[in-house]
Amino acid sequence: MTYCVDMILPFDYQTPKTLKEACRLLGEAKGKAKVIAGGTDLVIRLRNEEEKPDLLVDVTCLEELKGIEESDGTLSIGATVTHSEISDSSIVKRYGSVLAKAASQIGSPQIRNLGTIGGNIINASPAADTLPALMVLNAVGRVVSSESEREVPVRQLLESPYKSALKPDELLVRIQFKKLSQDTCCSFHRLARREAMAIARMSLALLFRMRDGNISDFRFSPGAVLPVPDRLEEVETFLEGRSPEEDLLRAAACKVSEAIVKRSGIRPSTSYKAPVIEALFLRAMREAMQQCQSNK
């Protein structure tokens, strides 16, 4: 057994100045390179020798990956935008508050100042805090390589726990989603074993609008309960177009735990997680409905 104090296996480190150069480096490395931005996840994995790259490509100097922009009803967030920048951004707060709220609860101020949204997605943790929010925002990632450029819904950026679906030569450049209309109600809840610096035990994001007293365009994604974060369409369909009576919400809460058990199976943690996700779901729904009330 070895205990490493400050030894990380040697690797090259490049800080490309252009996107083209970054793509070239990734392409040439043929899978032996890792992209680093904030490093809040990667450095730990390097130290534990869970990753042994020959090359680290630092993408924090690439202009294309920076900034939060608003155009034509779309919000575009650079992959290296930090959680602090997101949670402080007035545009994100206005047009995607569910994401701002999720980003504001990550780790600690130090982690939020370094960690980036792109890293949070590509690290593909089942408990990643921004993923449920991005899922309900129908966020799409713009992925670039030397050969191609494609737009990929966030869900499709994830392959399995801690494994993204990016090809080795691809880079996530920006994350985009349609601005939420001002009558959208949303909620994000997070539960952890302590008040800061703890991996989420469970989280969830949801949003909808009210149309003639009925729930419309309902979107829901739980965190840290599925191997790969996802939307729960069963619940979404169940509530779509219906009036949010208490009984219906309770029935929907049951659907939530049912859907999770169906996808993840009965685990030792299920007896705890199932009733708690139901309770959190109800809380989030009530909170969002209150928002709807005050929007009126």
Partner: peptide, 11 residues
């Protein structure tokens, strides 16, 4: 300290 939690200032 990733999986051994002690109270933070917020706790």
């Amino acid at each position: 300290f990733v999986n051994y939690l002690i109270p933070t200032s917020k706790d």
